[in-house]
Nucleic acid binder design. Structure first.
Lengths: 184, 184
DNA sequence: ATATACTTTCAATTGTTCCTGAAAGGAATA
DNA sequence: TATTCCTTTCAGGAACAATTGAAAGTATAT
């Protein structure tokens, strides 16, 4: 059942709304605040540069809120400012490349959040080695603690190397595709 | 500088505290509530079955809170109840296998959160195809919208297949290790 | 220099999520 | 059955996060 031409704007609006909502959920998953995600969703799906007023009107949120969240998006590198000649307003535009967006966020979160965790974990392990506590290290209860920390550290270190390779360029994605298509 | 035997309990306690705090941060990253993460951290690092009272005392949180969060942990499958004979109390014990814990959480979150997103995304795409809106599909502004949704869907579908393979068994991990060690 | 057009900041408000403690619920023992 | 010991539930409160709107800030045009 085809949509008549007159209904197209309504349909597009509805699809955009669905997408913005979806992107909001996606954002929650990545630890991104709802409004930030919605704004980015709107910029991404619309594919054009929008002004603060456009966004305020479309998403029904206040000027201050839009301003703050746009700055954060620019900081993350997901959105960039665009100046139009003969217009004092600033416009904002999303990155278009999805993979680039993913790696951008993944790399920053890894650096800010995962790396410190790994550092702490290593310190925990080092405090439980024979070098640190002598013969006690081999006996309970220290032995179990050490074992658990070490197990975790091994896995996280591995995942870390993997993600490093996977996220650092388009190459990682290509390798993954090959792995997926070769066997199976 | 080795620790004297008398200081060992203090040291262990400190390491455990650091670990619990670390696991709390890790949990935030996975969208798991702080207390739930801390309880699980304690159970994991201690490597033994603890009672509600043990946990309340060690983490200084209320009985109700411990109870609720333990149920959720059991629900997730990260913790299991243990009955000790001649004791009415219930004890709780964490899974020991780190990889198993990861896959458990990853699979459940995928099912609950990612799959619905993919469904919505497909619906968005389908509403923008030529089948749905005719010739308009090839012209702006519908064309861009379709393109963007389709790009995203392609990548997410790929990541989905990848993670499926990666997380469904120990095999995924082994493959990844091979990939990492073979070339580079 | 002043006015205009637009953006940023931030204190106050609102909204959300988390935690507590006490009461109700269950299950084992006497 | 009554008692004891332990767990769960949940309404209210505390802590935290997000949002607004108006004042201050900045830049361009006149």
């Amino acid at each position: 059942m085809k949509t008549r031409a007159a209904d197209l704007p309504k349909l597009l609006e509805s699809v955009e709304d669905q997408f913005v909502e979806l992107w909001n959920n996606m954002g929650t998953l990545w630890g991104i605040s709802p409004t930030m995600a919605r704004i980015h969703g709107l910029l991404y799906i619309s594919g054009s540069a929008l002004s603060m007023d456009d966004i305020m009107a479309r998403l029904a949120i206040s000027r201050g809120n839009v301003s703050m969240n746009l700055s954060k998006l620019v900081e993350w590198g997901l959105v960039r400012r665009v100046h139009k000649k003969a217009d004092r307003k600033e416009y904002y535009e999303s990155l278009a490349d999805v993979w680039e967006m993913f790696t951008l966020v993944a790399n920053q979160r890894k650096r800010r959040e995962i790396d410190p965790i790994l550092t702490t974990l290593r310190r925990c392990r080092d405090e439980l080695t024979p070098e640190a506590i002598g013969g006690q290290a081999m006996k309970e209860p220290a032995r179990t603690r050490f074992q658990r920390v070490d197990d975790l550290l091994k896995l996280l270190t591995l995942l870390d190397s993997l993600s490093q390779r996977f996220f650092e360029s388009h190459k990682g994605l290509r390798e993954a595709v090959e792995m997926l298509t070769s066997e199976d």
